[in-house]
Design a protein around this nucleic acid. Sequence first.
DNA 1: AGCCAGGAAGAAT
DNA 2: ATTCTTCATGGC
Length: 270
Amino acid sequence: MKETFFVEKTPTFDVWQTLDCGQVFRFKEIEGGVRICALDHCAKIFDEGERYRFECDDAEFFKRYFDFDTDYEAVQSACEDGGMVSKAIEYGRGIHILRQDPTEAIFSFIVSQNNHIPRIKGIIERMCEALGEDKGEYHAFPSVEKIAGAGEEFFASIGAGYRAAYLDRVAKTLLCEDIGEWQKLSTDALRSKLLSLHGIGRKVADCALLFGFNRFDVFPVDTWIKKVFEQEYENVPADKMATLLIQKYGKYSGFVQQWLFFFKRNEKKV
DNA sequence: AGCCAGGAAGAAT
DNA sequence: ATTCTTCATGGC
């Protein structure tokens, strides 16, 4: 925690919205702020009223991670529809899409399938605790080698349920793959790669594409998005719905998905 | 094409 | 104290 930097508060950046919109699981409240771990880095973020104070081990890492280079005002303007999307933008205007590590995103979203966010956080925390490098105050996200070596039984023992077999099998497959090379592929080619992994379907593939590879021409369709569009797309299967929504929202589909997900999931709160 | 088990914990009743 | 829901997928 040697480096400190400040980020001015703007209408298009809110730390709580960014962390709590379901894209990331390794954060927790601490006294006066929040602690977020990503790959093998960790930051504590404090609200100072006019600005946020970031205390971290690598300022450059977190400046990139929080995606401060994207012009969210421009993206939001381009997505306004005067209707449902505009309402969702108004509610989640401060969301940034984090630039997560591809491997961490792949395993995190395997854990996320048909699961509650509080439980997802617990499983991933226990994974890091047991398999990730000890960094003192926290544990790093485990390497593919560590995950591949843990064994299916380990993942079952930390409460992963039937996802234990997926985690084990995907890790063993990825040992023979160079994920860095995957970055060069088109979104469709990359999705095909992800879908070839046992335990990754369209939903998890699109989450990995959006959060781990920063492809915005994807639209993960989960139970909340289904609720948003159940009248408009009656009896349309989730995979087909995803394809139709990408056609509808184009290159900013991923942003629209995040705003709608966050808006719908919090509908009953506040 | 459509159904269902896989696991467990928060939320709802 | 039960039952329902949850950022789904693979097998049949």
